[in-house]
Amino acid sequence: MDEVLLIFGMFLVTFSVRYVLFAAAGKVHFPGWLNIGLGFVPPAVLTAIAVPAVLMPRGELWLQPDNPWLVAGLFAAIISVWRRDLLTTIVSGMAFFMLLRFGLGF
């Protein structure tokens, strides 16, 4: 099987998923309830990616204070509420995470 052909197939899948709605784009207006529901999709997507990543960093539920992903995640959330700055949150969250993992050997 030709590698390039397979890769092009992957591209078709990822791009059509991104684009399928726009393909038929006339001047369709979504009904109000749909627009409202879609407004909640961004936080829901982000939560659905982040929470399993932090609670199950190794594929199994790890709800203990020695889970550095969980502890650093909570720390990052607090920093984010306090400082309200994306970069500050990422840098301090990562620094804290690395301290837990490699400094304190969690």
């Binding site: 982000l46 982040a50 990543a53 932090v54 995640g73 990052a76 990422i90 969250g93 990562m94």
Partner: peptide, 12 residues
């Protein structure tokens, strides 16, 4: 965890 911090920052 970089992505984790980013996502959590965007959520809260």
């Amino acid at each position: 965890m970089v992505m984790g911090c980013f996502l959590l920052a965007m959520v809260v």
